[in-house]
């Protein structure tokens, strides 16, 4: 298969050095065998076709629902012959509420953990703890959901929710019967799921801050904590923001664990203790029984809405990460 240099001898009118130069240039320019070029282009083309196919096929399968109700699909949904209406707006609100609960719970804890692992903990402790959290990040969401449903839910119903109801001033958030499965439980389960993501990405961002910044702050008389607060965290801000946004994308798009613990009630939740539904849980619970036609098309419409929301969030996160990388590249 290998060719020898002899096949590539330059035309004789060139001087030897020019000949070598041209030969090298030709080698650089030549993709090196048509088969290899075909291989690369095939990979890229198939990938591009899949990405486009994903978008096109989902849009095509949901066109009936969007054609039926237009943009009002986004809040009122579509008529369904067997049940009633798929209230898209309620699912969107449910998705946003559970994600917000998850973010509120997970971000302070996650960033605090990352700060401890990256800046404050001794090396012998930080290493194993980081590995442990990275490994736990691989736990499948169905296992988290099972644990949320069978272990966490009774604990919430018996202890956590009655306790929250007693807190004065928060009645607006926590009222109604304490079932267990609720928006609050779904948000908590999501928080458990996104925590390792936030910790891992924020830790990477914190570790990326130049040591000179830490030393400069220390030389100005900052205490260890002040170094973290005034030099390290501001330096890693973009990275931490990107971590939060990517984790948010994961929380928005999670379906199976949420469907197991949210209680699946297609109504506007009046409290965090009330059962509800998210876009993801609504898709899981209704797609299987949906009749072909408008019914199924409406649920694929929910997928499109979910896809649009997560894509928006993820593109934002990626752009943020990219900006940080570019800024670092410019400095280096």
């Amino acid at each position: 298969m290998s060719t020898t240099l002899l096949e590539e001898v330059p035309p004789p009118r060139l001087t030897p050095i020019e000949g070598v130069k041209e030969g090298l240039q030709r080698r650089w320019a030549r993709p090196g065998g048509r088969a290899y070029a075909v291989l690369r282009w095939t990979g890229a083309t198939v990938f591009a076709v899949i990405v486009l196919g994903l978008v096109v096929s989902l849009l095509a399968s949901s066109s009936q629902a969007f054609g039926h109700s237009g943009l009002s699909f986004l809040w009122s949904g579509t008529y369904n012959a067997t049940k009633d209406i798929y209230p898209t707006g309620i699912f969107i609100i449910g998705t946003l509420i559970t994600t917000a609960v998850a973010i509120i719970l997970a971000v302070p804890i996650g960033v605090g953990t990352a700060a401890f692992l990256s800046e404050l903990a001794p090396k012998w402790l930080a290493g194993p703890l980081s590995v442990l959290i990275d490994l736990i990040a691989a736990v499948p969401s169905i296992v988290v959901g099972l644990w949320g449903l069978l272990v966490l839910s009774p604990v919430f119903a018996r202890h956590v929710e009655p306790f929250l109801k007693k807190i004065p001033g928060l009645e607006w958030f926590f009222h109604g019967p304490a079932y267990g499965p609720s928006m609050l439980l779904a948000g908590t389960v999501l928080a458990v799921m996104i925590l390792p993501t936030i910790v891992a990405l924020s830790r990477t961002a914190l570790q990326g801050v130049a040591n000179e910044d830490r030393e400069a702050a220390r030389a100005l008389g900052a205490t260890r904590w002040q170094v973290v607060r005034t030099a390290v965290v501001p330096g890693a801000r973009t990275g931490i923001e990107a971590a939060v946004i990517l984790a948010m994308g994961r929380a928005l798009g999670e379906t199976i664990a949420v469907a197991m613990v949210i209680g699946n009630n297609n109504a506007l939740p009046h409290s965090l203790l009330a059962p509800g539904a998210t876009l993801g849980s609504a898709i899981i619970n209704n797609f299987g029984e949906a009749n072909p036609g408008l019914d199924r098309s409406s649920i694929i419409g929910l997928v499109v809405v979910l896809l649009a929301i997560t894509a928006l969030v993820n593109v934002g996160g990626q752009l943020l990460l990219r900006r940080r990388l570019r800024a670092e590249g410019a400095v280096a």
Binding site: F47, A48, V51, G53, L54, S57, L58, A60, S61, L246, G249, R250, L252, G253, E254, T255, I256, G280, I283, I284, F287, I300, V303, L306, L307, T310, A311, V313, N314, V315, G317, Q318
Partner: peptide
């Protein structure tokens, strides 16, 4: 960029995509 965004696509969307195709 497409790969980075596809990484964040909810997995249920991929299931429905496979269903549709």
């Amino acid at each position: 960029f497409a790969a980075d965004v596809l990484t964040g696509v909810p997995s249920i969307a991929l299931g429905i995509f496979a269903y549709a195709v």
